[in-house]
Design a protein around this nucleic acid. Structure first.
Lengths: 198, 198
DNA sequence: GTCTATACTGAGATAGAC
DNA sequence: GTCTATCTCAGTATAGAC
């Protein structure tokens, strides 16, 4: 097997394990077992556990960027884009009920002890934040755009946290509906204003 | 020192450390250092780390119960009570920015690997949930009471998560204001209906 | 590039002296 | 009730054979 293939497998396995068990709880053995390589081989590809975390975060950033791009090409407009974001809670509800949000739980874990990768992990949040902000700006929300973005991010995080605690499907659906309604209410006056203006 | 005193000190130190570092990251040595006892002495009071976690959760349940009671005696009515809940985000913002919500982060950590105490940790959420639900019921929210309770819990959790990620004070204040507005809007139609009815 | 063997550390936990 | 000494185990990490 080529080095880059093995490396890739390690990152993928680590990604999943960090999400499912948490960073601290995941050991080299866990990852090695998942990839079916020896613990020793490990260090040919990564010098430390932190380096794997780094690679995992970079991978997630790239993957997230791709998802955001696909939403933009598939959607009819910014409102549709934002709704795609809201709906990931439904799409990923099985995992969220078991492990929470992969971004939120990692960020929380690293925040606790000011891990070196804390800043990198938060860039995942920021990726969504700026993207959502852009959507709201396109809708003419102006100075409120970033606030709206943060508001949606926060609501999603809260839903993920409680969904994991109570493993409740109906709760997720209800809150997603409310977020969707909030979006409509938030956009309607702007659409009305532009109709009146135009 | 009496056994119960030492025990109490251990629980208090563990409570803080579990909050600040997380359960997994906190070792016996950490707790022993904080209380200034030897690691060995430890086992006179608790048989295992899980047992300490148990005691910490029980302590938090008792403390929370007391806080809820004090809110009820201090407040003018259910709306005031609910506002007290919303405002803990402001009151505890310094800690929340550093370590997130003590309940949410513990619940998240234990959920990941289905820890035995997961259910107990969630009882902390449930304590707030049922209490909030009762307040909404007193306001005549009927079948919506539990949904409103969960909605507020989720919003608080989301705010705590993002506040910890971005260490942002203004964001907390803004979201608290919005939750407060939501509460007003949520209660106004009921108050109006009862005025019309009465 | 992958393996085995192994060093080193810190974790949770126990035994027994005081 | 508290201590020191010690055990066992799992963790990260390294060295060197293949």
């Amino acid at each position: 097997m080529s080095a880059s293939e093995t490396r890739q497998q390690i990152v993928e396995a680590a990604d999943e394990l960090f999400y499912h068990r948490g960073y601290e709880k995941t050991s080299f053995s866990d990852i090695a077992d998942a990839v079916r390589i020896s613990r020793g081989n490990f260090y040919y590809h990564f010098k430390s556990k932190d380096e794997i975390l780094d690679a995992v975060i970079k991978g997630r950033l790239t993957a997230t960027r791709l998802v955001l791009d696909s939403w933009e090409t598939d959607a009819k407009g910014p409102v549709d884009c934002i709704r795609s974001f809201i709906n990931i809670l439904i799409a990923n509800r099985a995992d969220i009920k078991k492990y929470g949000c992969p971004i939120g739980t990692l960020s929380t874990e690293l925040s606790k002890f000011d891990h070196v990768s804390r800043v990198d992990a938060n860039r995942l949040f920021t990726l969504f934040r700026t993207w959502l902000c852009e959507q709201f700006e396109m809708l003419g929300c102006g100075d409120n755009s970033d606030r709206f973005a943060m508001h949606l991010l926060a609501r999603s995080q809260g839903v993920a946290t409680l969904a994991a605690a109570y493993r409740d499907d109906d709760f997720i659906r209800r809150e997603v509906k409310e977020m969707s309604d909030w979006l409509d209410a938030c956009v309607k006056p702007i659409a009305g204003a532009s109709r009146r203006a135009g």
